[in-house]
Amino acid sequence: MLDFHKNHKNLVVTALTVFAGLSIIIAVLPAFQMQDYEPLPNQPGMTPNESAGLNIYVTENCAACHTQQVRNIEMDNVWGERPSIPSDYYYSKKRLGFLRQSPSLLGSERTGPDLTSIGKRQPGKEWHLLHLYNPRIVVKESIMPSYPWLFEELDSTSVRENDVLVPVPEKYLSKKGNKVIASQEAIQLVSYLQALKQTPMPDASTVGFIPSSKINENDENETGGKGTVNGENLYMQVCAACHQQNGQGLKGAFPPLAGSDVVNDPDYDLMVKIILQGYDARSEYGQMPGFAEQLDDAEIAAIVNHERTSWGNEGEVITEADVKRIRDFVMQLNQ
């Protein structure tokens, strides 16, 4: 018999073989099968710049605080339109080289927001650069570390022509009048972050989220828009990163909404158009991306109403139908 109590050989060999066998069944074989997946047909590949950015993402170990997985439960719906599927990770599945394995991007801690579609939520390059230089410039309460070693602070005479300037407010500079320029690494990292977005499923067949009854109940009670969306909450999620919670914006980067002529104008057309299409008409501010795809009419109406009635603004309230009218008009123009 095996006689484990007295035969050390049998004991060790049995314990190790069974463990190795179980490990192969539970880990190695599933892992081996799991490698085998293809990208979605319309999924864009990674540019060299983006790959280099991924490398910096790994070097700085961003995954310690940021996940990149939208779970199939309703609370994760804010991070993406559909739950993540294996194909989403196709272009990061290569080893990072001889020394390093393929990057662990799913993460296990959400100390900071999920980054699955950060490129859609925060499309602007200026925002990302400012945020990396010092997150508290754009998000006051953030506890993310600053990454000043990805930037260079120069006095204004030594700035070269091709340098990418970052509009850092004066109080964050070591000397008044200095300029901050982004290093190549910063630009690569930002281009990686900008590229992070979910590819839509090809046949419009969406994988559903497991619903949470609390959220549905809540929605009925909330005010704003047509009684289904909360404008303030949406503003906090979508707009506040740039225009700030208090609507004051950020000098040199993002214009204020409090007291803005566009926001207070009785004619709301321009305001809704800017939200739908984006805006890049004023050189003293960064470029604003359009949100036509990301937000539906009711959501835009809710946000507009929140902006027009907060921080001392006194604009009239608009409805979902108003937004729909402008959206249709804009669509026609584009065709």
Partner: peptide, 11 residues
Amino acid sequence: FYQDGLGETII
């Protein structure tokens, strides 16, 4: 050998 992409996550 079995660790590219999500295989890595299982491991």
